[in-house]
Amino acid sequence: MKKVNVILFSEFELLDATGPIEIFSRLADYQVTCFSENGGLITSAQGVQLQTTPFLTIDPRGILLIPGGKGTRRLVDNDQYLSQLKQLSIEAEYVLTVCTGAALLAKTGLLNNQRATTNKLAFSWVKSVNQNVKWVEQARWVVSRNIYTSSGVSAGMDMVLGFIADRHDQQLAKQVAREIEYNWHEDPDVDPFAITE
């Protein structure tokens, strides 16, 4: 059983987390659990509450999913939180970020000298968090070693389908996309929402 550890925090972006959760939950050999620093109910930026268990209970081996959202702007200055997140990321087999979740991972230093992307509407802010990352402005998602980073909100779903295609095969990813009636942007290098000048 492959474990998917979803990290939630106050004012996370709901679809950043629940889109990938929906996709992973379609696969019989994946188990999804939501975690937060202290456990309990966590409220999204949309006011929806999800139940979580504390960081201390995580078996870090597996997939770590870090969503974005308004809460990331507060957490990038929380050294204790970032220290915990860094350790969880080091121990994870794969780390996946959605939207401004990349800012949190970047602040840990684990994206230094690696290619990564993030929400185009928050690109300047995320880039300012860590200038040592090779930020990719036009990409739906980017893979660097065992780290996947994706653009804004729904791009997380494209990334997870891409992750499934990489780990399993393209047909399985397409099958899941059909089941949830989702138009998958299959090419990670093409982002129809990227801001071009």
Rank of each mutant, 00 (worst) to 15 (best):
G71A: 09
R74K: 14
W125M: 03
T117F: 08
T72N: 10
S89D: 03
A106F: 12
L27A: 04
T57V: 06
S44W: 05
E13Q: 15
V98M: 05
I90M: 10
P20A: 08
R115H: 13
Q51I: 02
P20V: 15
F55C: 13
S36N: 03
K127E: 09
Y94W: 14
F12A: 08
G68H: 01
D16T: 03
S128G: 05
T72F: 06
Y94P: 02
L27D: 04
G47V: 14
Q80N: 14
V76R: 00
S36A: 07
Y81L: 04
A92F: 01
C99F: 00
T57Y: 01
L110I: 13
E22H: 04
Q138K: 14
A103I: 03
E11Q: 14
P67G: 10
V126Q: 08
A102V: 12
V48F: 07
G71V: 04
E137T: 02
S124E: 15
N119R: 08
W125S: 02
P20E: 15
N130K: 09
A102D: 08
Q131V: 12
S10N: 15
F12Y: 15
E37W: 10
L96M: 14
N112C: 07
Q114W: 04
P20S: 05
V95N: 02
Y94I: 03
E13V: 04
F35L: 00
T118W: 08
T52P: 10
L14P: 01
I23W: 06
L64Y: 01
Y30W: 02
L88Q: 11
L121N: 11
T108S: 11
T57M: 12
V98P: 02
G109H: 10
T33H: 03
A103Y: 03
S36L: 03
L82D: 10
L27E: 07
L111Q: 13
I7A: 06
D59W: 04
S36D: 02
G19M: 09
Y94K: 03
A106W: 06
V95M: 11
F55D: 08
T97Y: 00
S44H: 02
A116H: 11
R73W: 07
Q84H: 13
N38I: 15
Y94D: 06
I58Y: 06
S36T: 08
D29V: 02
L75E: 04
L56P: 00
N38H: 15
